[in-house]
């Protein structure tokens, strides 16, 4: 399914490398981070363009859950404030499962219904990392297309 008006997530190859690299660096734990970019309107609808990828610490230091470190989040938000842009999503790794929101991911997706949730699977059977993106609203999951730029 898709939600109406779903943007295409456009990330550069360099941003993609940053995300994947941080996911590997975090092993054996899950890794996480934030996405910043332009957004439209009071509910901060992302355009899909990402201007900054923020690797953050996983405050849970866990292979099963993540919590974006609070100070890292505050710093990322202020960086985007200075640019006149906002946080438009987040990303985290699944070390041994698919790049699809877990029941916990769905339950805790409360930041903003317009946020884009990127999940990277490092499941060894895939041979290479798999990056996919979603929107999560009221318990429903919809995939967001991803386009690699540059």
């Amino acid at each position: 399914m898709t939600f109406p008006g779903t943007p295409t997530l456009r990330i550069t190859r360099a941003q993609h490398r940053t995300i994947i690299g941080h996911c590997f660096d975090g092993l054996p734990d899950e890794a996480c981070g934030l996405l910043g970019g332009p957004a439209i309107g009071a509910m901060e609808e992302p355009t899909g363009v990402i201007t900054e990828v923020f690797p953050t610490r996983n405050a849970d230091a866990s292979s099963r859950t993540y919590t974006v470190d609070g100070k890292d989040m505050l710093r990322a938000m202020r960086t985007m404030d200075e640019r006149g842009e906002v946080l438009v999503g987040c990303w985290h790794s699944h070390t041994h499962t698919e790049a699809y929101p877990s029941p916990t991911d769905v339950r805790t997706a409360t930041a903003n219904p317009n946020w884009i949730y990127v999940i990277v699977s490092l499941k060894p059977e895939h041979g290479a990392p798999v990056l996919r993106a979603y929107r999560i609203r009221d318990g429903a999951v919809a995939e967001v297309p991803v386009e690699l730029m540059g």
Binding site: L34, M77, T108, A111
Partner: peptide, 30 residues
């Protein structure tokens, strides 16, 4: 200001004139 109140005194954390209190969504999952 820059300090997460969970590491201070939570709701009992004192504030003074001129302090800025920021509320952000918690970002977590599994």
């Amino acid at each position: 200001n820059d300090e997460d109140i969970r590491y201070l005194d939570s709701l009992g954390t004192p504030v003074a004139e001129g302090d800025v209190v920021s509320i952000l969504p918690a970002v977590a999952g599994g």
